[in-house]
């Protein structure tokens, strides 16, 4: 399969800060590729280099075989971009915004007019097509920004945190629209720090932290790589005060987290942990209410790789 994006040694330095540090990977045509990382990891800087907004300090990249610097115009022609901020023109109407985006991407008049109406319809904005975008809600502006990126029917779509700060309804509309574009053949490169979003949408995920790629794989493989993040979840009939400390003494258990009335025991060997739990229950004469073994979530992978604890990860014993 031909590659849609090919980065080799791409680097961006801002003075002392290395925002993106020699990253190399490939996005295949037809994929939804997720670029996952915490704030300041270098996601936006990477997209900015790929789209011609900032000049790389080092390294090269190609978009559908076109070098982003030597054949900038050809590379840019293939892409649609949704920026982190919805950079619409507030003084123009929805239709005027789309029309302008089509004009600077050289879409012929008849085609851009038809496409603009089609996109406004798809995003539920037909009735507001002549309204000034300045009066639109955040979610509506975002949909306009996405429509502007799609006006030239791009082969590759960049989305920088497409759903950040939007409500569930808008999120669903946007995710579905992106998936639909992908089914029609558009390659998608999206950044997010929402792990669930990456998990749901992406065929492959690269995890970036401090400007470096620390993992790149399918979401299910990423989960599999972290054996130690497997866990057993258990709840007992009565709350045992000493539970957390005692369960932590089971040899195969690495750590214990109390989640409400349940305990979560992280282990590389779930069967051995289960035996330990039975022994504990029997010796204290308490009954087990519920017991589950869980695979690692993508969030576990993320925390494990980046060392960033997100909300919800509790203490350890």
């Amino acid at each position: 399969m031909p590659s849609a994006v090919e980065l080799s040694g791409l680097t961006k330095r801002y003075g002392e800060i290395v925002a993106v540090d020699h990253i190399s990977f490939e996005v295949k045509e037809g994929e939804i590729f997720g670029f996952l990382g915490p704030n300041g990891a270098g996601k936006t800087t990477t997209i900015s280099m790929l789209t011609g907004l900032v000049t790389p300090t080092e390294g090269t990249a190609k978009i559908f075989g076109h070098d982003i610097r030597k054949e900038a115009k050809e590379a840019k022609r293939c892409v649609g971009i949704v920026w982190e901020e919805s950079n619409v023109y507030p003084e123009l109407s929805a239709l005027e915004n789309l029309n302008f985006a089509g004009e600077i991407y050289h879409v012929v008049k008849r085609q851009r007019e038809a496409k603009a109406l089609e996109l406004l319809e798809k995003f539920g904005l037909s009735e507001r097509k002549d309204g000034k975008v300045g009066g639109f809600s955040k979610g509506m502006k975002r949909r306009i920004a996405i429509s502007m990126a799609l006006i030239n029917s791009p082969r590759l779509l960049f989305l920088d945190e497409p759903t950040a700060g939007l409500d569930v309804q808008s999120n669903i509309v946007i995710r579905e629209a992106v998936k639909e574009e992908n089914r029609k053949g558009t390659t998608v490169f999206l950044t997010t720090h929402n792990i669930e979003e990456a998990n749901q949408m992406c065929h492959r995920i690269a995890i970036i932290n401090h400007g470096k790629i620390i993992a790149i794989d399918r979401p299910e493989n990423l989960r599999r790589t972290i054996k130690s993040a497997q866990s057993v979840q258990v709840s007992f009939e009565e709350d045992a005060e000493t539970g957390e400390a005692e369960l932590g003494k089971i040899p195969s258990v690495r750590r214990v987290i109390k989640e409400g009335h349940r305990f979560r025991l992280f282990t590389e060997d779930p069967p051995a942990a289960l035996e330990g739990i039975w022994d504990y229950a029997r010796s204290h004469g308490i009954r087990i209410l519920e017991i589950n073994t869980l695979g690692p979530t993508l969030e576990d992978v993320f925390i494990n790789l980046t060392g960033t604890a997100q909300a919800g990860a509790g203490g350890r014993s």
Binding site: G52, L53, K76, R77, I81, E85, N87, Y89, I104
Partner: peptide
Amino acid sequence: KAYDRLVCAP
């Protein structure tokens, strides 16, 4: 950031 759109256009 509307100017970015012009910079990134072909």
